[in-house]
Every structure is written in structure tokens, then in C-alpha cells.
């Protein structure tokens, strides 16, 4: 019987939501949560012998968390380790990617995880572990398990996987030699003919898309500059007047803080559903530092704090949406004469 260890977060372990995101790593015997579906999909060929779980915030904030997780996994001497899947959850994706990469590197055990295309964990770890492509939310769990379980079995048996496109994982960057029926020159001409005819063709070597923006020059005279605050941490006036969604935000808000010296629990709150809101609601300056920016303004460290701040919720929000938000409000920032931005994220 193939021995599997499953890594999940506090939510899937049934411990709780964001209020429990700070729990340290723990291990339980057998399967928990989504492990049940994996176990069923193994059809008796493999079994989840233990499940290791950790709070997503704890994992991302404590460098030693990964060592504890690895030690807990090592005790089980598994044939394969499955992490997640994490779908589009950023911190969970980083945790799954870190555990999968480190287990593979340190213990030499094959590892497998699953994520949505836009999860930051994909770019961080796709060259270090196999990451199967999944939907963006847990609604895609059944499909993800159906895709991941057979791949996991084959990896545990030491079988070689097919190409990324055929198996459904993110390309790892490793190239393998193989024999094609047609030689390269013929394939290239075929491709060219299709291109000339305006037909669809598939490149054999997609160019990586690096969307990098060069840094702007430093601000020369901050003491006379207008500085604006922007946040993806969801700080909004109490009552969330624009109804910014707690996850997958479809819009942002623009809020006037002219004359506001400090954010209080009576006037502002967070709309973000992806972290424990207790601390931000008690003191919103912990996410949007209006109080100290006012002090820097009075001290002449900055020219002025812009009258408006912009806020959205960066929780499973599509990259395309975030791009559109910032593209729109950056034009307003420029029109307002803003010369520098501090953007805070949770």
C-alpha cells in the first residue's frame, strides 16, 4: 500500500477560518477534510496515513513552520506528499508550494500540489514541484482530486510523467528529449503556412511572459511632495458604503480623508474576508497608517497626505481586475498631483 501524507490549512482541517489562521503545525492520523476524496480516488492503491495542517498566516509569518511540518512528515516515511490543492488562496498556495518543494528537496520524496493559474505560489514553485492546474475556488475540488489522485499514484510508483500539457500541470521548465514523427524543418514550415493562412497554430516553445515594470526614479523632494495611500487590505469607512466584496472584489473605493487625523474603530473597518479582521477593525491604522502619515505631514517630512485614499480587497481578486482598478485610479492620482504612493497589503 502506498503511504500518503496530506498537507492542508486550518480551514480544510476543520479548525476554523481566519480567526484560526495563526495555529502552529499539527498532525493527525489518517485523512481530514479533502483527504477523504483523495482516499476514495486512490481506490485502495494508496492511503493517507497522516494529515499535517497549519494556519496559513502562521506558516507565512514563521520561517521555522516549514521545518516543523517537514519533521512531522518525515516521521511517517511516506511514498508521496500531497499538498492542498490551494486553488486561488495566496497564503495557502505559498504554504503548499513551500512544503512540496522542501519535502522534495530535503527528503527526496515526490510531491504534488494543485493551484489556480493566478495563485502567486504557481510562479514561485512551479519549477520545484509538480503543481496541477485547478479552478480558482473549492468548487473545483472534485475535479482537482480526480486529476491529482492518479498522477500522485504514478509518481509514488516512480513512473515518469508525460508532458505538462498532457498531464495538466504547470510547466516545470525541464525540457525532455523525445522523437517527433516529422522533423523540425517540416514542423516549422507547417506552422508558418498555418500562420500565413491565418489559421490557429501551436508554438512548440512559448515565450515566457515577464511583465516587469522598471522602477521610477526616487522622489527628490519628499518634504514638498503629495503622497497618497492605497491598500489592498480592505480598509473602508464603517458600513462599507461601496459594498466592496470580502473576496473576489469587483471594484475599489475612493475615500476622502481630508481632515481625518486618525482612523478609529468607530469610523473605519476592514471589508477584507481573507484575514482575521479583529486587529484591523480595532485599529484600522494597523493597515492604513493615516495616523503616522499625518504626523509626517505636520513634521514636514512629506509635503502633504493626499485627500483621497484608494482601497480594495485583495482576496482571490483576479489579477485582471486589480490591474484595471489601478490603471484607472493611477490616472486620478496623477491628475491630483500625487508624486508618490504607499501601498499596504495584508
Amino acid at each position: 500500500m502506498i503511504k500518503v501524507v496530506h498537507y492542508i490549512n486550518q480551514f480544510y482541517a476543520g479548525k476554523g477560518g481566519e480567526e484560526m489562521a495563526n495555529i502552529p503545525p499539527e498532525k493527525v492520523k489518517g485523512f481530514v477534510g479533502p483527504g477523504m476524496a483523495f482516499n476514495a480516488a486512490f481506490q485502495g492503491e494508496a492511503e493517507i496515513v497522516a494529515t499535517v495542517f497549519c494556519g496559513d498566516s502562521y506558516f507565512n509569518e514563521n520561517k521555522e513552520a516549514v521545518d516543523t511540518v517537514i519533521a512531522l512528515i518525515k516521521e511517517e516515511n511516506p511514498d508521496i506528499v500531497i499538498c492542498g490543492p490551494a486553488f486561488n488562496a495566496g497564503r495557502y498556495g505559498v504554504a503548499c508550494g513551500t512544503v512540496a518543494s522542501e519535502v522534495k528537496a530535503q527528503l527526496g520524496i515526490p510531491t504534488l500540489t494543485g493551484m489556480y493559474d493566478e495563485n502567486p505560489g504557481v510562479d514561485m514553485f512551479k519549477s520545484k514541484t509538480i503543481i496541477m492546474k485547478t479552478k480558482d475556488s473549492a468548487a473545483g475540488m472534485r475535479k482537482a482530486v480526480a486529476a491529482m489522485a492518479p498522477v500522485a499514484l504514478r509518481m509514488a510508483k516512480g513512473e515518469e510523467l508525460g508532458s505538462a500539457a498532457a498531464e495538466g500541470y504547470f510547466p516545470t521548465g525541464i525540457r525532455k528529449g523525445l522523437f517527433e514523427e516529422k522533423r523540425g524543418s517540416e514542423r516549422a514550415v507547417d506552422m508558418l503556412l498555418k500562420k500565413l493562412a491565418g489559421e490557429e497554430f501551436e508554438t512548440e516553445y512559448p515565450m515566457p511572459q515577464f511583465d516587469r515594470v522598471q522602477p521610477n526614479p526616487a522622489v527628490v523632494d519628499l518634504a514638498h511632495a503629495k503622497v497618497a495611500l492605497v491598500t489592498s487590505g480592505g480598509i473602508v469607512p464603517k458600513g462599507n458604503p461601496d459594498h466592496i466584496e470580502s473576496s473576489s472584489a469587483s471594484h475599489y473605493g475612493k475615500y476622502d480623508i481630508d481632515g481625518v487625523q486618525v482612523l478609529t474603530d468607530k469610523t473605519y473597518e476592514t471589508a477584507h474576508g481573507g484575514y482575521d479582521p479583529v486587529y484591523a477593525n480595532a485599529d484600522p491604522n494597523r493597515v492604513l497608517p493615516v495616523d503616522v502619515m499625518r504626523e509626517f505631514e505636520k513634521e514636514g517630512r512629506i509635503g502633504e497626505l493626499s485627500h483621497y485614499y484608494y482601497a480594495t480587497v485583495g482576496n482571490g481578486t483576479a489579477v485582471a481586475s486589480a490591474k484595471k482598478f489601478a490603471d484607472t485610479f493611477s490616472k486620478e492620482l496623477i491628475a491630483d498631483g500625487v508624486q508618490a504612493v504607499i501601498l499596504t497589503s495584508t
Binding site: E61, P120, M124, P215, F325, A326, S330, I334, I342, S345
Partner: peptide, 29 residues
């Protein structure tokens, strides 16, 4: 968002806890 603000020509600094994510996203400061 940080990248679009930068692209618009405004110097921007990203304050965040999970630095690897910020690096992956493409923040410069």
C-alpha cells in the same frame, strides 16, 4: 496594483508581510 501605479509613472512602495509574493508580483520598492 503596485505595478500599474509604477507603470503610470508614480514611484510606489509596497508594504507587505509576505515579501516573496510581492517579489513575484513585481513590486520594485
Amino acid at each position: 496594483m503596485v505595478k500599474e501605479i509604477e507603470r503610470a509613472g508614480i514611484p510606489v512602495v509596497h508594504m507587505c508581510t509576505v515579501v516573496p509574493i510581492s517579489l513575484t508580483v513585481g513590486a520594485n520598492r
